[in-house]
Write a protein that binds this DNA or RNA. Sequence first.
DNA 1: CACCTCGTCTCGCTGAGCGATACGCTGGAC
DNA 2: GTCCAGCGTATCGCTCAGCGAGACGAGGTG
Lengths: 253, 253
Amino acid sequence: MSASPDHATVLSKATAILDAFTVDDRTVPLAELVRRTGLHKATVHRLANELVGLRLLDREPDGYRLGGGLFELGMRASAERGLLELAMPFLQDLYERTHEIVHLGVREGTDVVYVAKIGGHRQARTPSRVGGRMPMHCTGIGKVLLAHAGDDLRREVLSGPLVRRTPHTVVAPGALRRQLDAALETGVAFEYEESTVGLVCVAAPVLGPGGEPVAAISVAGPSPRFRPDTHVAALRAAATALGGVLARRDARS
Amino acid sequence: MSASPDHATVLSKATAILDAFTVDDRTVPLAELVRRTGLHKATVHRLANELVGLRLLDREPDGYRLGGGLFELGMRASAERGLLELAMPFLQDLYERTHEIVHLGVREGTDVVYVAKIGGHRQARTPSRVGGRMPMHCTGIGKVLLAHAGDDLRREVLSGPLVRRTPHTVVAPGALRRQLDAALETGVAFEYEESTVGLVCVAAPVLGPGGEPVAAISVAGPSPRFRPDTHVAALRAAATALGGVLARRDARS
DNA sequence: CACCTCGTCTCGCTGAGCGATACGCTGGAC
DNA sequence: GTCCAGCGTATCGCTCAGCGAGACGAGGTG
């Protein structure tokens, strides 16, 4: 029962197939799925067809696609968590006040998963996508989450390899640690083109009742024009307000 | 291989377990899952534990919960579809202009599935939830989608049972057909407390290149105050603009 | 105490799932 | 045109993953 990376059970094979889809590909042919999963062709064929019947996959003329049932399940998963629904109004307010790109992200392992993204029509150069991932050390949200996290997680990330994503990515553990300390002090973290060239952002944590970070909000914009510090106040207000609502929700048993 | 309604395969059992979760329950104990699925206790126990390992379920002290992996998959499913990402900016614009509740919905069978919902802090009495469903005949989005749909679908819904959800729900096929004809004519559908008492809305279709409806947008508000006709222009503009963007996207092979 | 319900675990039986193999189709190379 | 590669699909015995009756301990209730 150990967490074996091999595909022993039917379910693990099925999820391997589902996980083989990335955010970018619209439709994936059978052969490609075989390649990505390493499963036998007949197996993929059989399971994929069954998944189509269960609405977890869609059959398209030129391949498969993640299905509508998955979307429903995913939204139900997020609804049960409640975070997204409660957060949206605050994110909208923040967007309306700043008219810059607003992100909501949570931690998942040592990555950040984006839960919501609000931006106008001009959000050309942001690689982030809702449901997508980013390493913690190179994003504002990741850094502020890490700063408020426990020592073990901080140590794990700092000791792990800090991938360089742009020339500005902070890959020196010492420098990163200093930034984290500063973020813990001030309650906000900045990012200057560390995940994407041309993109700057500020992030603030949404803290739970015990002071543990449950999510983080960020405001981002293009580097020449965007002044992150001008949005700190509005950002902090939104984050703490959301934290308050979450705490109140959890208080009702 | 006949479409047996019973749970023959492992996968169908696993999805039965996942589907046993509703939007409202935060956590479900094992015994309750056994009851809802009708599966053997040992089976649910085994599968649920495996699903936890695959991050499709989360283990909580007092039961199971839909897991974070499902959310990621769901968002990827929606990203591949592309609709949500392209639509969001238009929905935000619409919200900013009206400051009323904005919905984006698509058809799924004879139901409407809500893909996005934007509303401020005061959205108390809307039962709709992102990822949730509603019958077509009693919602603005549903009616406008049905009006622009093919004859077979229209016939199916009109001949099927029209569930009465409120005293104002249109349950007479003839009356509904007239409303659909009007909606097809004018390009918008109205709903007056037909799904929820106290809720009024207007909806407009997002049409694909071939004139087929791919989604619909609605603006909703509380019945005493909300004047649906004042938002028709902005709504129509948003819907057609979104349709144009979608068409342009699909044009690029 | 007896009597629930709930979660967990064991253990043989068996059929669901496996993958080697094969077939028909399409499209590009030549 | 022929050849071939890669695709999706279908077949069919073998076997082990998955099944479910049942047992067990923990909590809760009368």
